[in-house]
Nucleic acid binder design. Structure first.
Length: 111
DNA sequence: CTAGTGACTACAT
DNA sequence: TATGTAGCCACTA
């Protein structure tokens, strides 16, 4: 079915919306939860498209080491960091502090 | 159809 | 430990 792609994107958005307040997750974690652990790039691609969605907190999605790799894709220069700090997530030098503590794994928390 | 790129990750050197 | 290369899938030229 050609609409599978749409489904994949929708699933990514759904998981992103499920990220609790003050928590962050990684592209790979979402990809793994979706059954496409080796398609973390697709999650990033979906996030790029998520800019069209208001309900998708893409700022809560970072790479596996907690670096705001996608901060450049947000408006302004520190919007992503500002949003995270606004939720109580400490960010320094484009990197999430205490990443292990704020990390939220859908494959582990939701399962 | 081939080649290049990208909000990633894992393995290899 | 740090740097480089490969795999991954979708999109664009």
């Amino acid at each position: 079915m050609k609409q599978d792609n749409q489904n994949f994107f929708e699933r990514v958005y759904d998981v992103a919306r499920l990220i609790p307040y003050g928590r962050v997750t990684s592209y790979g974690a979402i990809a793994k939860y979706l059954g496409a652990a080796r398609s973390a790039r697709m999650v990033g691609w979906a996030m790029n498209a998520s800019g069209l969605k208001e309900d998708v907190p893409a700022h809560r999605v970072v790479n596996r080491i907690g670096v705001l790799s996608g901060k450049h894709h947000f408006q302004g220069t520190n919007l992503m960091q500002q949003l995270l700090e606004s939720e109580g997530v400490e960010v320094e030098d484009n990197q999430v502090m205490d990443f292990e503590k704020v990390f939220w794994d859908p494959a582990a928390e939701l399962l």
